[in-house]
Design a protein around this nucleic acid. Sequence first.
DNA 1: ATTTTGTCTTTGATTAATCAAATACTCGTT
DNA 2: AACGAGTATTTGATTAATCAAAGACAAAAT
Lengths: 219, 219
Amino acid sequence: MPTSTVENYLKAILVHSSDKDAVVATGTLAEALGVTPGTITTMVKSMAARGLLEHQPREGVRLTAEGRAVALAVVRKHRLIETFLVQVLKMDWKEVHEEAEALEHALSDRVLLRIDAILGHPTSDPHGDPIPSPKAPALDRGKGATLATCEVQRPLRVERILDQSPPFLEFIQRTGLKPGARVRVRERDHTSGIVRCELKEGEATLGLPEAAKIDVRPL
Amino acid sequence: MPTSTVENYLKAILVHSSDKDAVVATGTLAEALGVTPGTITTMVKSMAARGLLEHQPREGVRLTAEGRAVALAVVRKHRLIETFLVQVLKMDWKEVHEEAEALEHALSDRVLLRIDAILGHPTSDPHGDPIPSPKAPALDRGKGATLATCEVQRPLRVERILDQSPPFLEFIQRTGLKPGARVRVRERDHTSGIVRCELKEGEATLGLPEAAKIDVRPL
DNA sequence: ATTTTGTCTTTGATTAATCAAATACTCGTT
DNA sequence: AACGAGTATTTGATTAATCAAAGACAAAAT
Ligand SMILES: [Mn+2]
Ligand SMILES: [Mn+2]
Ligand SMILES: [Mn+2]
Ligand SMILES: [Mn+2]
């Protein structure tokens, strides 16, 4: 069985491979995992030997089918845990990511089945991130619109929050721009870099880079 | 922060120190933790250096106040988790020990607080083991009667199951001798080594060593 | 007072994960 | 073609946890 370190490495590779079989640079992983580049090279070589990924020296890494399956299972566990912590234990959505980061390596599949059933087999977590199914279909990396790119004046629904740092989530909560909320972009000004939105609760104004962190869907 | 290995060592020492400041032999720990004696000696020396316990070479170990506090916190976490898994997630009490063994090292105090609140601050776990309070008072190691020592014919209540191996728990469940159940010893025969009990569900017969694994209280 | 036995401790290795610092590539620029 | 900048890999250590096998000790048996 993979150690929790290996599980974290696999997850990081998965979420950093934008598309199908894009290679991820070892430097990207060093950054994402907070370790030195040399550590990544060493770990990656041993994971390649175990068949979890392929390593093109000086190029990057790509998950094998087995590595991807493990990574998807970990992501699924992580997101179901987050959902459970928020919906059942009534925890703050700003703190659940950290908790899930540890619990995803300790929770058995048996417990996960119970949690999934109690939650009614949810398909997205509190941040709007999709929960991969147990049969492990692809992880759809937001190919839709964001508040920075969507049509102005069109009625929309917030789909997903891409930046999950506590301060950003705090802002989202304050303005009401949470997943599921109805919203309409009133004005987008590329000169001032400002996006003004209208929600049921009132108005929210944010910068373009921030608006790009909020996935939306027309309707 | 202690690693999960250190937490497991501390817990093992705690549950094996029958009384206050009894020393625990390193061999006992090797047996309990499933590692070689040499490993225990090495670990114990490093834990002593960290102030978690005292080591009398060739004698045994004794927890310091700090070591005991950590151990009690881990035991509390373990038992609250077991209770939660049974009561909220509706899991089988035969499998929760194993789950808790891993989760006790990953669950934060924040989550534990929520679990404790949702359960209504329980004082014993599904096996009848007491849940140490957060202020960490002593862990009362069953000083009461068992089905092997109690008065015959007296109405009793099952308090606690001391053997938590799945097969024994399976037997307990089948006979209905679970914590909380009312029971009365009909006959105890030291020649045949048999104890016959009467419960609401009918009768249960078990051997003396097995009867000694079931704590009871008059009433 | 020896010897034996059973328990502990030491010693020397191993595996996983990590770092710092030295070294080696690869590209894009002179 | 040579150089320099930016990455990536190697190398040599370190820490935690573990084992096997050798050695030390203390209590019990002779
Ligand atoms: Mn993690
Ligand atoms: Mn999430
Ligand atoms: Mn444990
Ligand atoms: Mn228990």
